[in-house]
Design a protein around this nucleic acid. Structure first.
Lengths: 133, 133
DNA sequence: ACCCATGAACGACAAGCGTAGTACTACAGG
DNA sequence: CCTGTAGTACTACGCTTGTCGTTCATGGGT
């Protein structure tokens, strides 16, 4: 199923914009980037977009003389893929080790803890899993 | 405090070896890599090690004509840093959202769920610190 | 029909990574 | 003292990323 897709910060930034608004022209993307204090030349944005397209991450349709870009990968998949890389590497896929790390290290609100407990309770009690072994 | 350190897979692999054995010569590192099906020329390993050192991630002392490398960054810090990047980006630092994602997506064993509940219970009940290396 | 503005296409360049061959140095054995 | 060998240093090369400048095409206004 999953191709190993590894994205840089900027690439992620571009994707994010496309995810947020479904579609966007190069100019639009550039504008958003600028608003995010990410000052880049419009051509830079175009170049990045092109390269992303060449890799099959996004695509575009032409409307008039403008390109309207659209993401081809879903955020949830990228999220999963990138997270997997880190978790697999550092925790060998052991989710509890990961959460343990999170809870230990950074400050986690008691609220968060509570919410997590809630979440897990739902998971184990509410939804019936019929997975064996 | 936190420098943004972004490591590639190979760099992580090298670091891992140094973390595991505290210290290692270039040759030793190479050997381990080979055992891990990561077949690289010894010179390649040396080059990578040098570059890592230039970036301040590792260091070495000289024993005879050999270099004995040692990591300058702790695994826990790199772990945290790399994980933060992903979690901050995708979940805005919301740990419960992250865990939610994890629990929803890949199949998490009931065992894991139980362990997590245990973990959280400890966390919210008695604040016990147990050292992690 | 012509010129300009708008935006894409192309080319460029520096830095960093992965990869490795070759050069050099220094210690050890004869 | 000379040489072989081990092991680092140097150099190189192709690829990707971030960053643009410049060129080119085209459609719209006068």
């Amino acid at each position: 199923m999953g191709e190993e897709l590894q994205l840089s910060d900027l690439q992620l930034g571009l994707l994010r914009i496309l995810w947020d608004r479904e579609e966007a022209t190069a100019l639009e993307v550039h504008t958003v980037l600028v608003e995010q204090d990410r000052g880049l030349a419009p051509t830079t944005v175009s170049t990045m977009l092109s390269r992303l397209e060449k890799k099959g991450t996004i695509t575009h349709r032409t409307e008039g003389r403008q390109f309207i870009y659209r993401a081809l990968v879903r955020e949830v998949d990228v999220r999963r893929s990138m997270l997997s890389r880190v978790t697999d590497y550092f925790f060998g896929g052991d989710v509890s080790a990961l959460v343990s790390h999170l809870v230990e290290g950074r400050d986690v609100d008691p609220d968060d803890i509570a919410r997590l407990q809630q979440l897990l309770a739902e998971r184990s009690g509410g939804a019936e899993e019929h997975d064996d072994a």
